[in-house]
Design a protein around this nucleic acid. Structure first.
Lengths: 341, 341
DNA sequence: GTTAGCACTCGACGTCGGTGAGTGCTAACC
DNA sequence: GGTTAGCACTCACCGACGTCGAGTGCTAAC
């Protein structure tokens, strides 16, 4: 619905504002190479764009800044994706060339790189293992009264819980328990473990092992405490370098939000595949009204298991951010796929 | 070396300044109950205290604020420890009454409570497992090419690595490998595992299993990547509520420091037992010159395995902070001791 | 449709005097 | 000799005021 010239001007304004963080005037747009119009013409178009809701004016005698709607249009239609800085690319590649032995570590480091290359704040949600299936189960006794229960999932994720052994339970029978549990439960999705424990495993176990009700109860209880999503953030302090957050009160609510894992998880959870950009008020969360959040999902063994996010001011370098996240999430998927096979 | 009256006045000034964050004048001290001197007398003493280096004056016509030396004296000689708010105590107790099944979780939550009760920033260094000994070893194959190696330590800590299985290695022999490793390595401290692998285990393994050099190499390599100290912070945003950090630039370096795990670990590492207070420049780290850091160690099974820290401005409520950390670290030790037995 | 010209707006910045909290010093008091 | 009242002095803070300049909207000419 915008004319070609309006798109050109909107694009120029957003680009300029992303760079400078200061209201853009008609003169500076006019001077740009590629724009062959005088300031007056630009002004007319800017007035129109403001009327249409794409631009805003902080006060009468200032230049224009993009509105949320303006950014949305920019992201949807104007932004150039795919142009990468050579240096950045080399940085990413050399990172993925390194050898790592823990999935969480890989993902965390990827997020750190993202934060340092973009100068925004990155957020990783730990792997969602809820829909994984059980690969192996182990019980390691620590002493007479407690043991460590270990669960390995099909994606190579390891969970552990310390449980207390019911008094009267013969510790030598643990092996039997483990064998039966493994026989019955391998391949079962984690979220069905509890039910299975009580239905199918219970009677089987009763046949061979005494005092087993208590241990089943204990295990079920330990499983109850589903691993809360762990969230890792990096580059939090980058938020403070943004001129729009020079005022402490503006950053405070954002940092509080970053501190608070549940809010973070909630905001991420309607996870759609691929890369998503939420601008300003599109974020449900009060604290993020002045921010933009870009999210990308990552995949192991065919299922989406987690999300990487990048948080910045609304005046974010969307082109660079989206491009980098695209590269990163694809490389990540490739590495994880190859690794897991 | 200070007279009783000087101590009284210094104490009053520090208390006042901790509360108000504003330079303290002679008049307000004089009005305090328990101080029976006129402003003029107080002024004389204040001038002396300043000459001795315990106080500072932001500018001529302002009141006095404590210097780092003043805080140090306050912490060493004046601060009242042990007075707890009933509400806080109830909060701590109710926390420890909850049932938890993961050690890390307990410690993290303890730190979160500390942060929310004090309104400062708390830092937890993940358990130092380097000196733990091996309790059990497991290998869980994920597919033909990779497996998860799991290590359980005597304190119930679980470590895991994904390793790739050398081509040509018979996957059915993994069990044998595990059995031999367990027979040979249980009880060995983690930091000696690598050496032991090559010396004692190697030849034994050679006798029963073919292609075992590669797997030993892989394992040794995985162990090489010693788990970096994980650090968890909570209450980061509390830093922003402190009036001394209303200026973004002042907080920035601190948040950067908090972001950067290695610096954090370094600063914590000369860990002495018990509670320690480092004020301002006593912190080696540049970023913390305007902060105070209180650290407390926690203990499982007789050995110190980690540290909890509390970071605030120099103008910190030392009494409350130290008291709470004392209670918390003791309760924590009690719970962990009972839990592990 | 485009552009030059011009009056107008309004935040940023520097200056300036008034205000008040707090000091140091001196001299009087107990 | 220690304590205190009195007083002149200092200096950050604050609101008022004027200047400056970037940027606008509008009009008229091209």
């Amino acid at each position: 619905m915008l004319t070609e010239r309006q798109r050109l001007i909107l694009n120029a304004i957003v680009d300029d504002y992303i760079r400078s963080a200061e209201p853009v005037g008609s003169r500076s747009i006019s001077k740009k190479s590629g724009v062959g119009y005088s300031p007056a013409t630009i002004r007319n178009e800017m007035a129109d764009l403001e009327e249409l809701g794409f631009l805003e004016q902080p006060h009468t005698s200032a230049g224009r800044i993009p509105s949320a709607k303006g950014y949305r249009y920019y992201v949807d239609h104007l932004v150039r994706i795919g142009e990468v800085d050579e240096e950045d690319l080399r940085c990413v590649r050399s990172f993925f060339a390194r050898k790592m032995t823990r999935m969480e570590q890989i993902i965390q480091h990827a997020a750190m790189i993202l934060a340092s290359l973009t100068n925004y704040t990155s957020i990783v949600l730990g792997p969602e293992v809820f829909s994984n299936s059980l690969k192996a189960f182990q019980l390691v006794p620590l002493n007479d009264q407690s043991a460590v229960a270990i669960i390995v999932t099909n994606t190579g994720h390891v969970e552990n819980r310390t449980i207390s052994i019911p008094p009267g339970f013969d510790i030598n029978e643990l092996e039997k328990v483990v064998a039966i549990l493994n026989a019955k439960l391998v391949g079962v999705p984690l979220h069905r473990l509890q039910t299975k424990l009580y239905t199918e495993v219970s009677e089987e176990l009763n046949r061979y092992v005494s005092h087993c009700e208590e241990i089943i109860d204990t295990l079920a209880q330990a499983l109850e405490q589903r691993t809360e999503h762990r969230a890792f953030t990096s580059g939090t302090s980058n938020m403070l370098t943004q001129p729009e957050f020079r005022d402490v009160n503006k950053v405070k609510s954002i940092l509080e939000w970053l501190d608070e894992t549940p809010a973070l998880v909630r905001s991420f959870s309607p996870k759609q595949e691929g890369i998503q950009v939420r601008i300003g008020q599109e974020n449900a969360d009060e604290a993020l009204q002045n921010c933009s959040l870009i999210t990308a999902t990552y995949v192991v063994d065919g299922t989406t298991i987690g999300t990487i996010g990048l948080l910045g001011p609304m005046r974010m370098d969307y082109g660079k951010a989206i491009t980098l996240m695209d590269i990163l999430s694809k490389d990540l998927a490739a590495v994880l796929a190859k690794w897991y096979n």
